[in-house]
Amino acid sequence: MIALYTLMEGIIAFFLIAGSIFALIGSLGLARMKDFYMRLHGPSKISTLGVGCVLLASIAYFSLLDSGPSLQELLITIFLFITAPVSAHLLSKSALHQKLERDPRTRGNPQELQEDDDEHTSEESPQGSSKLP
């Protein structure tokens, strides 16, 4: 029984540390990257991997505390997994609508950004995403 408790404690600690490291890396990407279209990449890691790991740790901890399964935290996980792509899609649509500036290293050449982009990326082919880095 003591061995089971020690093992579960190690698993919970691993999930907590892994989730918080994912969250720190995602927020660092949000703070450090160049333009909005790059910055959109970091927070999706937080809401899937970071909070997912923390909620798994919470499920394991409360299951151990009550000596029975406690699956309430799965509600938050499922809700976040469903809503994260929707909000990211809406954010990118509003950014394209506002014609935000983009870094020349950002790949892709969407229709909405093409007319004010002609002077410095005119040598690109229309399918700019096939360009090698």
Binding site: G26, S27, R39, L40, G42, V51, L80, L91, Q98, L100
Partner: peptide
């Protein structure tokens, strides 16, 4: 820009 701030608030609630 405004979408940057919305994205940061979204990340903050998560």
């Amino acid at each position: 820009s405004l979408p940057d701030r919305i994205l940061a608030l979204d990340t903050m609630y998560v």
